[in-house]
């Protein structure tokens, strides 16, 4: 993570944009989910209107009771619970992606807003900045 004060400069004349971070990958197997989450946490320092979308295998990122001991990787799923403390509370999950994987909202470790594919597309269309991992 960065620490320099230059990076933390949020004096952009009060510009607030809608940022959506789109999570498409399973939490392990590739690093996208973990490094994506790092960007989300940093974005909280910029006082933007931040949301996250979970689609395709990205819905697995929010699965309860992840156990990574056998693959010798850090279980970073508790971090999603900390997002609330960063004022990142808009977590949109695509209904079709959950259903295709036999998951329901009850399987997830945080409170989410479930949207169907069309609603998700509409939500994406509202954004100023979409960053996809």
């Amino acid at each position: 993570m960065f620490t320099s004060s230059e990076d933390m400069d949020t004096d952009e004349g009060g510009v607030i944009k809608q940022f959506m971070f789109v999570n498409r990958k399973a939490p392990y197997g590739t690093i996208y989910a973990l490094e994506g989450l790092e960007v989300v946490l940093i974005s909280a320092a910029f006082e933007q209107d931040v949301s996250m979308a979970f689609i395709d295998d990205g819905v697995y990122e929010l699965k309860k009771a992840q156990d990574t001991k056998a693959i010798e990787q850090k279980n970073f799923s508790p971090t999603y619970r900390a997002l609330e403390g960063y004022d990142i509370e808009k977590l949109y999950v695509e209904k079709e992606s959950l259903e295709a994987r036999g998951l329901t909202e009850a399987d997830l470790l945080v409170d989410v807003i479930v949207l169907d594919r069309a609603e998700m597309a509409a939500k994406m269309a509202e954004q100023d900045v979409l960053i996809s991992f």
């Binding site: 993570m1 960065f2 990076d7 940022f19 933007q48 996809s132």
Partner: peptide
């Protein structure tokens, strides 16, 4: 080399942020 804040700042400052991946 710098921090991730530079990415977020680019999102704020730019008319378009284009991802290649």
């Amino acid at each position: 080399i710098s921090g991730l804040g530079q990415l977020v700042e680019a999102g704020i400052q730019c008319d378009r942020l284009v991802t290649f991946g």
